[in-house]
Amino acid sequence: MFSTDEATARAFGLFGSLYLTSTTSSTGAVDVSMGVADPTALLVIFGLSFTVIAFAQLIYALLTQYRTDLIAARAGV
């Protein structure tokens, strides 16, 4: 991106939802800016991550309760 001959370069990442733009100013300095181009992919990734973490916590709680029940049954309580 910084090695191009163009005055302005733009790159997209994370399924096109984030962008990075670099421009060369008149003094020769490189100005870089970034932002959100399309929030849909970000919302989908956030939703999937939240769902996976919620299921992992649910499974952990169920397995912990099952372990407690097994220990109690073995002890004869």
Rank of each mutant, 00 (worst) to 15 (best):
M1F: 11
F2V: 10
F2E: 06
T4H: 08
T4A: 10
T4C: 03
D5Y: 06
A7C: 05
A7I: 03
T8F: 08
T8W: 03
R10K: 13
A11I: 13
F12G: 05
F12P: 01
G13P: 01
G13K: 08
G13T: 13
L14Y: 14
G16I: 06
G16L: 04
G16E: 03
G16S: 03
S17T: 05
S17A: 11
S17R: 02
L18P: 03
Y19G: 02
Y19K: 00
Y19H: 05
L20R: 08
T21G: 04
S22I: 12
S22C: 12
T23W: 01
T24N: 04
S26D: 15
S26R: 14
S26L: 04
T27K: 05
T27W: 02
G28I: 03
G28L: 02
A29R: 08
V30G: 02
D31G: 10
S33E: 13
S33A: 08
S33N: 15
M34P: 01
M34L: 11
M34F: 14
G35R: 02
A37S: 15
A37H: 14
D38S: 10
D38L: 09
D38P: 00
T40P: 00
L42C: 01
L42A: 05
L42P: 00
V44D: 06
I45R: 07
F46L: 12
S49I: 03
S49F: 06
F50A: 14
T51Y: 10
T51P: 00
V52G: 00
V52W: 04
V52K: 04
I53G: 04
I53N: 07
A54W: 09
F55I: 01
F55H: 10
A56K: 05
A56V: 12
A56N: 06
Q57P: 00
Q57C: 13
L58S: 11
L58C: 07
I59Q: 05
Y60L: 14
Y60E: 13
Y60G: 11
Y60P: 02
A61S: 14
A61K: 14
L62T: 04
T64S: 09
T64Y: 09
T64H: 09
Q65E: 09
Y66R: 12
Y66N: 14
R67N: 10
R67V: 11
R67D: 09
T68F: 08
L70F: 01
I71L: 08
I71M: 07
I71R: 12
A72K: 11
A73M: 06
A75M: 08
A75N: 10
G76D: 02
G76L: 01
V77S: 14
V77Q: 15
V77D: 15
V77Y: 13
